[in-house]
Amino acid sequence: MTQSVPSTLRRVMTLGLTLAVFGGAGAAVYAGFAVISAQGDAGAVSRAPASIVAAMQIDIADSYTVTRRFTGQIEAATQIDLAFEFGGRVTEVLVDEGDVIAQGTVLARLDTSALMPQRAALEADLEALAADAALARLTLARNDTLADRGFRSVAAQDDARLALTRAEAGMAATLARIAGVDVQIDKSALIAPFDARIGARRADAGQTVAAGQSVLMLFDAAPARARIGLPPALAADLQTGDSVMVEIGGSTHAATIRQIRPDLDPGTRSRSVILDLPAGLDTVMGDTLALVLAQVVPEPGFWAPLSALREGARGSWSVMALQTTPDGDRTLPAAVEVIHSDGTQVYLRGLLPAGARIVAQAPDRIAPGQIVQLAANPQE
Rank of each mutant, 00 (worst) to 15 (best):
residue 320 M to Y: 00
residue 185 I to P: 03
residue 98 G to H: 14
residue 40 G to F: 09
residue 26 G to N: 07
residue 369 G to W: 00
residue 287 D to W: 01
residue 94 L to F: 12
residue 266 P to K: 09
residue 303 W to R: 03
residue 76 A to K: 00
residue 380 E to R: 10
residue 341 S to Y: 01
residue 55 A to R: 04
residue 157 Q to D: 10
residue 155 A to T: 10
residue 293 L to M: 15
residue 146 L to F: 11
residue 140 L to C: 01
residue 277 L to N: 05
residue 34 A to N: 14
residue 360 A to R: 01
residue 184 Q to A: 15
residue 342 D to M: 09
residue 342 D to S: 10
residue 74 I to W: 00
residue 134 A to E: 15
residue 258 R to E: 04
residue 200 A to F: 07
residue 316 S to N: 13
residue 335 A to K: 10
residue 185 I to R: 03
residue 304 A to M: 10
residue 204 D to Q: 12
residue 212 G to Y: 12
residue 110 L to G: 12
residue 379 Q to T: 04
residue 235 A to C: 14
residue 145 T to G: 11
residue 313 A to N: 08
residue 100 V to P: 01
residue 143 N to W: 04
residue 214 S to L: 12
residue 82 L to P: 11
residue 284 V to M: 05
residue 274 I to S: 02
residue 58 I to L: 13
residue 122 L to F: 08
residue 128 A to F: 09
residue 193 P to F: 08
residue 234 L to S: 06
residue 9 L to V: 14
residue 11 R to Q: 07
residue 274 I to A: 02
residue 102 A to E: 14
residue 35 V to T: 09
residue 15 L to T: 11
residue 280 G to V: 05
residue 188 S to N: 08
residue 151 F to G: 09
residue 268 T to S: 15
residue 23 G to A: 15
residue 71 T to E: 15
residue 313 A to H: 09
residue 132 D to S: 14
residue 142 R to E: 12
residue 15 L to Q: 07
residue 248 I to N: 00
residue 30 Y to T: 03
residue 304 A to Q: 13
residue 154 V to R: 08
residue 266 P to N: 11
residue 338 V to G: 02
residue 268 T to A: 11
